[in-house]
Nucleic acid binder design. Sequence first.
DNA 1: TTGCGTGCAAAGGTTTTGCATGGCA
DNA 2: TGCCATGCAAAACCTTTGCACGCAA
Lengths: 145, 145
Amino acid sequence: MPKTTYKTKQQDLLFSYLREMQGKHFTAEDVRAHFESKKISIGIATIYRQLDKLVSEGKIQKYFIDDHSAACFEYSGDACNQNEKHAHLKCELCGRLIHLECAELEDFGTHLKAEHGFVINPLRTVFYGVCTDCLNKMENEGQNE
Amino acid sequence: MPKTTYKTKQQDLLFSYLREMQGKHFTAEDVRAHFESKKISIGIATIYRQLDKLVSEGKIQKYFIDDHSAACFEYSGDACNQNEKHAHLKCELCGRLIHLECAELEDFGTHLKAEHGFVINPLRTVFYGVCTDCLNKMENEGQNE
DNA sequence: TTGCGTGCAAAGGTTTTGCATGGCA
DNA sequence: TGCCATGCAAAACCTTTGCACGCAA
């Protein structure tokens, strides 16, 4: 089915942003602000529509972090490095979002499939917890619960 | 610090709901609807405020599933069974939310702590992927990507 | 010329907040 | 009586949608 789609200036701009942000995460608002700072105006609706399209094409990933804060998107890179499947760690204290590239995660995924019949999508999965820095901080301060 | 808090009818009602829903997840709207069906009216603001308080006291857990749909809450039970730390699996296809009680998850948590210095909070962690039922359905239907 | 993509503004849903009132201690 | 908790409505926030216009093919 030959999708009848037009190439537009906004799409190109968005792609250039994706390449620039490869491996980093961003929100729809980040995209808008980025172009605004370059005196380029792209409607936020267009950004959402393009991002949604890219998500459904599997070109970028979308995941949800906090409460009702903005959704995060990420361009994991061009076609080939599909095997670099990282997940994310979200620190509940400092709010930092950390990339996790970890062989053990794949083992765990294998276990989940074998024993629980569930195939995980690591790219969308976020682990909540406390990061190294915050753990150290807590230890130094003694424990004030 | 002796928190000066009052006990209210609404708090009691909410607690009774929590006990009833122990181990199940629910949204703020679920709580409101539950009481409305019993001809009891609790303001949605009160529900959010009470739930927030319980979350910050660690009595219930809050996690985020989909897009911008409502947040899920869960009462994991009274004090003692803290060691039954389950996580959740969210099927991206049928939307089902599945409880995961799994020793391997603890092992993975141990690894994360040892190798990545990150302590996970399984109760808030949601794995995305595809559940058994949907996998079977996909196999039966052949692969329509 | 055709009709997709865009931009604006309005609407949508969930959650938060301000303020007056009600009810616990 | 003092003051926390409640309820209502309005606001805030991110995201989606309707509609007219612009622009790619």
